[in-house]
Design a protein around this nucleic acid. Structure first.
Lengths: 231, 231
DNA sequence: GTATAAAGTGTTAAAAATACACTAATCATC
DNA sequence: GATGATTAGTGTATTTTTAACACTTTATAC
């Protein structure tokens, strides 16, 4: 088209994705053991190069889809990483994204194909390049956001019990909360509707299921909320 | 060096900077009227292309220095913008940064050379490309950050009065605060040390100067704080 | 000496966060 | 069918934080 910029340099641009999932007990990261160079055999985030025909957000969606088979999940840009030697192979500007997924939704075959594994955020292998930094920042962002927006729900099915939800928040903040205060606070947002059904796998007594009301949740998201249970 | 990535496409990468300054009354943006194509004659953020020999952060510092002659100021990455047609000339990935500067510090000649002007955040000309979005996000970020970190101080000299500080916060949030509650809250952080000197230009009585204690400020930054005066 | 203009000061009420301990339901077992 | 074990579920009192609110002080200009 035009050539205003032709004296300037061009760069490889990639996206890397920090994928979070909750298994009922711990918050986990989806990592891949690279079976391709450079740094073959080492652990890293899932990533991919930006293509001409897609936006950054689309590239992130594509990369996430390639690994998990998932679409329409929570995916948000973290920030750009652009140190000169961050990739020892060649200079690459990487835009980091983080995703929140329901851990049972992914496509098993795709994960195997990419050599991907879940690791708890408290204990995962050291990653290539600046990926450790990316993860650190993503966790900080998730913790910050979970205080003001109910994004924790993105990692859970629509039907949940309150003890499950509390475990998720405890896994995010690596901290125990008082269950009376937690329940009080969560219910005060009026996004959960109690069902007659009980979940009976994790306890004999069984915990009531609550249904997660999308519409009220969207309202909360727009207006912002303040989740502050002893955090 | 290597050639792992040679099948991938390369892109122009630029940085654009949202520059905030406080004039004692209003929060302002430093904008430039482009005297070069494309979109010559239109208003935009100050920007520049990334070069091979610099990181993204360094590019942002260089661009800020080119326009203002300033170094060592608060400069933080906002996010990357990568829609395909965001720049109608050619595809450019832009990394937006925002800077907080002391409005009297800049180099007058440089500003003139670049055709730059200060505009209040409440009333500035429409900008090219996606720069309006960038500004919107930068203001939101500034408001969020100013609640949990005392970054407002970055736009003020080391010696300030409390009414000045309050005006800054009112300019950021476009909202009046109760001066008793404001003073109480600010002083409770113990980052301000009262001096014997008074500022007497804006009032007959004069307001005591306070000295801004860098060391205690750094501690606050690390531990996080909560600024919540009626916001 | 009086009018003016901004600085400075304290208390009370309301809301939110925090701390804390017992009962209820069900299953497994003896 | 009584008992023990395990997790769910509930209410109140205390402390802390936020919010609302009005008068006095100081210096200058006239």
């Amino acid at each position: 088209m035009s050539s205003y910029y032709k004296e300037h340099e061009k760069f490889y641009v990639a996206v890397d994705i920090i994928i979070f999932g909750f298994d009922g007990e711990r918050l986990n990261l989806l990592l891949i053991k690279r079976n391709f160079p450079p740094s073959k055999g080492k652990w890293s985030l899932m990533g991919g190069f930006l293509k001409n025909y897609e936006s950054l957000d689309q590239a992130a969606e594509r990369v996430l889809y390639t690994l998990t088979g998932l679409n329409n999940v929570f995916l948000e840009q973290l920030q750009a990483y652009g140190n000169i030697y961050r990739d020892p192979g060649e200079r690459v500007i990487s835009i980091a994204y983080y995703a929140l997924i329901k851990i049972d939704d992914y496509d098993e075959n795709l994960l195997e194909k990419h050599n991907a594994h879940w690791y708890p955020i408290t204990d995962f292998p050291s990653l290539i390049f600046d990926h450790n930094n990316m993860v650190k920042r993503a966790i900080a962002r998730l913790r910050r956001k979970a205080k003001t927006q109910p994004i924790g729900f993105e990692m859970l099915p629509a039907k949940i019990t309150i003890p499950q939800l509390q475990k998720l928040y405890e896994a995010i903040y690596l901290k125990k909360f008082d269950k009376r205060n937690f329940r009080k606070k969560i219910l005060s947002y009026n996004v959960l509707e109690k069902l007659d059904e009980k979940e009976k796998e994790t306890s004999k007594k069984g915990a009531y299921y609550y249904y997660f009301n999308e519409r009220k949740y969207s309202q909360l998201l727009e207006n912002g909320y303040s989740f502050n249970v002893n955090i």
